[in-house]
C-alpha cells in the first residue's frame, strides 16, 4: 500500500491524476474502519490533512465557500450562525473525537444516505466543488450524490469545497437514533426556510438510497405559509406536510429500523421541525 501525504492542493491533485485509484483520507472515520476491519485494501491512500487550503472557508459571490477539510467541530464553532442547519447536523455526528476529525468533504466522498451533513446541503441547494489537474467544476449536491455510496466524482478528481448560501431564515435538523448519542441516523430530516424567496427546503436523510428533497411537501407548504403576516400554521397543514414528507421516503428495513418506522418517523420530524422553524420565524429571530 502506498501512502501519499502532499502538503499542497496542487500536489494532491497531481497525485490523484497519476494514481486515480488512490483513496482519499481525511478524518478517517470511514476509510480507517474499512482498513481496520480488513474490508478494503486500497493500492494507495492519499492523505489530505496536510493540505492547508482544504481547511479554509470564506465568503464570495453571496455564498460561503467551505473547504472540504473543515471539521464538524469548526462548523459548529465558526459557522453556527451562518449555517445553523449544518451546525445542528454536525452536532449530531458521533462524539467530540469524531467531530474533531470528520469533515463534510468526507460525508460527500462517502455519499452514505445516512450522512448527517447531506440534508442541510440539499435544502440550501449547495454545490460541490470538484478539482483535478484539468481544472475545477461545480456540481449541485443533488446531482453529485448519485446513489448509495456513489457520487459523480471522476477518478482523477478530489472534493475541494462546497458552496452554500448563508442561512436566509430559520433552519432545522433532526435525526432519529435509538440511542441518545453516538448513532447513525435511522432517518433524519433537514429543513430550511428562505423567507425572502418564500421558499422552503425539505430533505430526508437515511430514508431512501440517497438523501431526497421532498418537493411536493415543499410546494404544498410554500403555498400555505403566510410569509408576510407570519401567521400560525394550522394543525391540518402541519400534518399534511408531515405526510407528504413521509410519502417522499422509500426506505429499507435493516438492523437499525424498519421501513415503516422510518416513513412514520421522518414525517413526525418534518412536522415538528417545521413548527419550530416557523415559530422562530414568527418571533422574528
Amino acid at each position: 500500500m502506498e501512502f501519499h501525504s502532499p502538503d499542497s492542493w496542487r500536489e494532491a491533485l497531481e497525485v490523484k491524476a497519476a494514481q486515480p485509484e488512490a483513496v482519499a483520507i481525511f478524518g478517517g472515520t470511514d476509510v480507517m474502519v474499512d482498513l481496520n476491519f480488513d474490508r478494503e485494501r486500497p493500492g494507495a491512500v492519499l492523505d489530505l490533512t496536510r493540505v492547508p487550503e482544504l481547511g479554509e472557508w470564506g465568503e464570495g459571490d453571496g455564498r460561503l465557500r467551505v473547504g472540504a477539510g473543515v471539521t464538524y467541530t469548526r462548523i459548529i464553532s465558526e459557522l453556527g450562525s451562518e449555517l445553523p442547519g449544518l451546525a445542528m447536523a454536525s452536532r449530531t455526528v458521533g462524539s467530540p473525537q469524531i467531530r474533531n476529525r470528520g469533515t463534510v468533504g468526507g460525508n460527500l466522498g462517502t455519499a452514505s444516505p445516512a450522512g448527517d451533513a447531506l440534508p442541510p446541503l440539499y435544502v440550501s441547494d449547495a454545490e460541490v466543488e470538484l478539482a483535478s489537474t484539468n481544472g475545477t467544476r461545480r456540481v449541485p449536491v443533488v446531482e453529485f450524490i448519485t446513489g448509495p455510496k456513489r457520487n459523480a466524482m471522476r477518478p482523477d478528481e478530489l472534493i475541494a469545497a462546497f458552496h452554500i448560501p448563508r442561512a436566509e431564515g430559520p433552519q432545522q435538523y433532526a435525526k432519529i437514533g435509538t440511542r441518545n448519542a453516538m448513532v447513525i441516523a435511522v432517518c433524519a430530516f433537514g429543513l430550511a426556510l428562505r423567507p425572502e424567496r418564500k421558499r422552503v427546503g425539505a430533505c430526508l436523510g437515511s430514508a431512501a438510497p440517497t438523501p431526497v428533497r421532498a418537493r411536493e411537501a415543499e410546494e404544498f407548504i410554500e403555498s400555505v405559509l403566510d410569509w408576510d403576516s407570519r401567521g400560525e400554521i394550522g394543525d391540518t397543514e402541519l400534518r399534511r406536510f408531515g405526510e407528504l414528507v413521509g410519502e417522499a421516503a422509500s426506505p429499507i428495513s435493516d438492523v437499525r429500523g424498519t421501513a415503516a418506522y422510518r416513513t412514520h418517523a421522518v414525517g413526525v420530524l418534518a412536522r415538528r421541525t417545521l413548527g419550530w422553524a416557523w415559530d422562530e420565524y414568527r418571533r422574528g429571530e
Binding site: F3, S5, I25, G27, G28, T29, V31, M32, V33, L35, N36, F37, V45, D47, T49, G94, S95, P96, Q97, I98, N100, R101, M182
Partner: peptide
C-alpha cells in the same frame, strides 16, 4: 472497537482530541 465508537483510544493529535484508531499512521 477500532472504529471510533468507544473512545478508548483517545489521544491528543496536535492538541486536538481524536480517536487514534481512526488516524492512519502516516497522518
Amino acid at each position: 472497537c477500532e472504529q471510533g465508537e468507544c473512545g478508548s483510544c483517545s489521544v491528543y493529535l496536535d492538541g486536538v482530541l481524536v480517536c487514534s484508531c481512526l488516524v492512519l499512521a502516516g497522518q
